[in-house]
Design a protein around this nucleic acid. Structure first.
Length: 928
RNA sequence: GCGGGUGUGGCGGAAUUGGUAGACGCGCCAGACUUAGGAUCUGGUUUCGAGAGAAGUAAGGGUUCGAGUCCCUUCAUCCGCACCA
């Protein structure tokens, strides 16, 4: 073969490794650039063609930036803690570290074959003690910090203690789990244990009894983003709500900064929106309602304070702590029955019953603080304990959920907002509530005639004046539950003294994961670490048996790459000052509410405590789309072993069956291979069309069960890594999902060979001329330089690959073999196809790596022509084109075009009304 | 329901930021070379039409000399959130 990719790729991969070509160090003479991939969890299945898509993109970007003179940090590592290896351990007894190591090696092998330019000396693995030492260290810092709302940053807990000693809680404005109130004297009078309990209310990493998503099957709790539709994202097991003592991170303290930071990063609008939605900031008011005849206050949260005149009842969440206190004896049985009923449902059942109205009356009444009206208080599960105060003022006229509830239980509905330009009507005739915020207040005393927006302000002012309410902001975001009842994760550097948790001294880190005999929970239901022998401190205090969740290790890994071997600190000041944050981050959008929020929180905290110079981790982010599979089908006639070709299948009753895409080429089935595939098919019969069996196709998720998986290793073996890289980029825009066309790769393979032939003669001998390049050759080259520069910045590598093809086609046509052209062309191709480029580069006589070459400089003058082929349109429709000198002015062009023989028939019988002339664009003649 | 994205040949997709729609590639068709072709090379390939030409970027309307691109309405589809008061 002329172009021997197998040999070339092996040779240069070895050369890059041996010469440490991809090793980077801080270099103050060059600007830095940090290109990062979301590091993978090494699963047992290995990589399919979808995985490297992002890695190839970042690799090209990194190589390009390097050619442009940047010092590029481009590392890779492994998110090595995870449930699958642990589930496997429970089943087989194999230590998860063993499984993980094996999978990592397989990943590495696959990645190496594709020729990535990672600096592997910087590799991190979240499960290595040298790495998780710093995960544990950060946890201790979080434990020892609180959040000051005034200065909007984390502060050492010692400062809070000092404050308590002097002022107690007077004037305190900090993030807290619940409001507390005590004097300095009271603080000083507390026992150590009591003081520790108080501090738990403020720590950024704290322990609390929390309603959690408990997954019995996995034997652990899960974070909100790890649960979907009431099932665990990993494994799809049922999840139930349960109250348990858990570690949490006070991420809610950072809600506003997490929201504001989104405006400073260059991410897709959709991911930013998902995060905004997840944080769920809503501004409204807190209003206090007295309970009639009792000395009890009910606090509600509303965004529609303007509708206070329209509230006709109140609703509490069934779990609300005051339910029992307000319920009258007459209604107690009914209320308790309702609470039991709602409590015993799983998350999944609850979600399935959404919109099914249910509730119970407590017999109590609230007093409207503005009108003094008596409002019946109900409990219903449409009010969630986890949001606001778990109690609402219901305004059925202007809230669709309250409306449905009122209709169901025949509660009164009144109108207090009307659409501008309409008259109020009888709510009894309504089919739905009027929820829109563009309206005008009616039946509302001092609010009448105001717009909704004005009325909200006015009402909050009134509430504050009366001391029965205040403006308030609420968030949907919840504190992140940070403990898992699992083995394969970071142990907490926490021990218990007198039942209270204390952070270990930093000098004890890393606290290594102990060996245990079995990976299951104990018989008494304690986490697996409870099986560890001597899981106590030197002083004999018991150590925490929970471990950290998957996102612990992945929240700060991008920092560790900056200084991966530092055993004195997380990363040095010097390294962080230089590398700062990630300039380009590439990975999946599915991490929008998990990793990408936790990482931002982690970074902001490290910024607050003076470690990170930046407070956002990922400046620019691109989310790659999924590569879908293109499945093939055969059609078996029901009740037979006869298969009918695609075009004829409609005449029969058939079952479509997935067939391995390896037996199919251009949708034609290889019948012999198919027959030998599975015993059932050995004696299959076929109804053919034109002597062939044509398969049906469908675009679906790429998966083993659909027999449509393309394995990158096979493609590298068949076409070479360079062809695979080019093809993955050529497929289409990175961010879009698109199907993998098994045939299409042939086109890029032809291109690579055509590129090779440009540098060689028919005998496969290098054939390069030192003669100066001609104008058309230079033009072709410089057009490409421009196209590539534009394409890289906008990450539209598909258009760059097509520009390569155009350029190579043109140069082949011109029979160009000039060094002046082929030398820079080789550099330009190298980010995309590094192996063939390195080979050609050395054949061209260079003795250093093409990786360290310089990107050619675009010269506009090489692309200009002295004439332009003008499209000539009549009334906007293109009719013919005309080559005209660029030196002509408008009058000359106009005259030339009108005089052209082709113009005559379009002008004939009409008048030329106007001529539009846009230089180097178009000539348009308006006739009529 | 709310929020975001996407609709261009048989397929993947291009179209300087309003200026020749369909680049590039796959597939398909024809030809060349071959014992052979599922190898390679050359040419063709939006649709209708013999042709001149006409139509054409999800559908309809608008702005403009000119719209795939801007504005309005509708539809389809994908993703996220979903009793969040």
């Amino acid at each position: 073969m002329d172009y021997n990719f197998i040999e070339i790729e092996k040779k240069w991969q070895q050369y890059w490794r041996d010469n440490k070509i991809y090793k980077v160090e801080i270099d103050h003479n060059k600007p830095k650039f940090y290109v990062l991939d979301m590091f993978p969890y090494p699963s047992g299945a290995g990589l399919h063609v979808g995985h490297p898509l992002g890695y190839i993109t970042s690799d090209i970007y990194a190589r390009y930036k390097r050619l442009k003179g940047f010092n590029v940090l481009h590392p890779m590592g492994y998110d090595a803690y995870g449930l699958p290896a642990e589930q496997y351990a429970i089943q087989t007894g194999t230590h998860p570290a063993v499984t993980t190591e094996k999978n990592i090696n397989r990943y590495r092998e696959q990645m190496d074959k594709i020729g990535f330019c990672y600096d592997w000396d910087r590799e991190v693995r979240t499960c290595e003690p040298s790495y998780y030492k710093w995960t544990q260290w950060t946890f201790i810092q979080l434990f020892n910090s609180y959040y000051c709302n005034g200065c909007k940053q984390a502060q050492p807990i010692g400062k809070l203690v000092a404050y308590f000693e002097e002022y107690g809680t007077v004037g305190l404005n900090v993030a807290e789990s619940k409001p507390m109130s005590f004097t300095a004297a009271e603080w000083k009078a507390m026992s150590e244990k009591e003081q520790q309990e108080v501090l738990m209310n403020y720590r950024l990493a704290y322990q609390a009894e929390a309603m959690v998503n408990w997954c019995p099957e996995l034997g652990t709790v899960l974070a909100n983003d790890e649960v979907a539709d009431g099932l665990s994202v990993r494994g799809g097991f049922p999840v139930v709500r349960k109250s348990m003592k858990q570690w949490l991170l006070r991420i809610t303290a950072y809600a506003d900064r997490l929201l504001e930071g989104l405006d400073t990063v260059d991410w897709s609008e959709s991911v930013k929106d998902i995060q905004r939605n997840w944080i769920g900031k809503s501004m409204g008011a807190s209003v206090i309602f007295k309970v009639d005849g009792k000395d009890i206050d009910l606090e509600v949260f509303t965004t529609r304070a303007d509708t206070l005149f329209g509230t006709t009842f109140m609703v509490l969440a069934p779990e609300h702590e005051l339910v029992s206190a307000i319920t009258t004896d007459e209604h107690r049985a009914e209320v308790e029955e309702y609470i039991t009923r709602t409590k015993n449902r799983s998350e999944r059942e609850r979600m399935a019953e959404v919109r099914k109205v249910s509730g119970a009356f407590t017999g109590a009444y609230g007093i409207n603080p503005i009108t003094g009206a008596k409002l019946p208080i109900w409990i219903a599960d449409y009010v969630l304990m986890g949001y606001g105060t778990g109690a609402i003022m219901a305004v059925p006229g202007h809230d669709s959920r309250d409306f449905a509830f009122a209709r169901h239980f025949s509660l009164p509905i009144v109108q207090v907002v009307k659409q501008p330009g309409t008259e109020p009507s009888d709510p009894a005739t309504w089919e739905e509530s009027f929820d829109a915020k563009d309206g005008e207040l009616v039946n509302s005393g001092f609010l009448n005639g105001l717009t909704v927006k004005k009325a909200i302000e006015r009402m909050i002012g009134e509430l504050e004046k009366l001391g029965v309410g205040t403006g308030k902001t609420n968030y949907r975001l919840r504190d992140a539950i940070f403990s898992r009842q699992r083995y394969w994760g970071e142990p907490f550097p926490i021990y218990y003294k007198d039942g209270m948790p204390y952070a270990m001294d930093e000098s004890k880190l890393p606290l290594e994961l102990p060996a245990i005999d079995e990976y299951k929970p104990t018989e008494t239901g304690e986490p697996p670490l409870a099986r560890a022998k001597n899981w106590v401190t030197e002083e004999g205090y018991p150590i925490e048996t929970n471990t950290m969740p998957g996102f612990a290790g992945s929240s700060g890994y991008y920092f560790r790459y900056q200084d991966p071997h530092n055993d004195k600190e997380y990363f040095s000041r010097e390294a962080n000052d230089y590398w700062q944050n990630v300039d380009l981050y590439i990975g999946g959008a599915e991490h929008a509410t998990g990793h990408l929020i936790y990482s931002r929180f982690w970074c902001k905290f490290l910024h607050d405590i003076g470690l990170s110079c930046k407070d956002e981790p990922f400046q620019r982010m691109i989310n790659q789309g999924m590569i879908q599979g293109r499945s093939n089908f055969v059609y078996r006639i029901i009740g037979t072993n006869k298969f009918v070709s695609f075009g004829l299948k409609d005449s029969y009753e058939v079952t479509p069956i997935h067939v391995d895409i390896n037996f199919v080429k251009n949708d034609i089935l290889n019948i012999e291979q198919f027959k030998h595939w599975q015993p059932d098919f050995n004696d299959a019969e076929f109804i053919l069309e034109d002597g062939k069996y044509v398969c049906g196709t469908e675009v679906e998720k790429m998966s083993k069960s659909k027999y449509n998986v393309q394995n990158p290793d096979d493609l590298v073996e068949k076409y070479g890594a360079d062809t695979l890289r080019l093809y993955e980029m050529f497929l289409g825009p990175l961010e879009q999902s698109k199907p993998w066309d098994t045939q299409g790769i042939e086109g890029t393979f032809r291109f690579v060979r055509k590129l090779w032939r440009l540098y060689h003669n028919e005998n496969n001998e290098l054939c390069i001329s030192d003669e100066p390049a001609t104008a058309p050759e230079l033009k072709s080259l410089h057009k490409l330089i421009k196209k590539e520069e534009e394409g890289v910045e906008s990450i539209s590598f598909n258009t760059v690959v097509s520009a390569f093809m155009i350029c190579v086609n043109e140069l082949s046509e011109l029979k160009c073999n000039k060094r002046e052209i082929l030398d820079p062309l080789c550099v330009m191709v190298s980010p995309y196809a590094p192996h063939i480029a390195e080979e050609l580069w050395h054949l061209l006589g260079h003795d250093t790596s093409v990786v360290n070459a310089t990107f050619p400089v675009y010269d506009e003058s090489k692309t200009v022509e002295n004439s332009f082929n003008y499209p000539v349109s009549f009334n906007g429709k293109m009719r013919f084109s005309m080559e005209l000198p660029v030196t002509m002015n408008q009058d000359e062009i106009q005259a030339a075009v009108l005089a052209a023989p082709e113009s005559a028939k379009w002008i004939e019988g009409k008048q030329v009304r106007k001529v539009i002339y846009v230089p180097k664009k178009i000539v348009n003649i308006v006739v009529g």
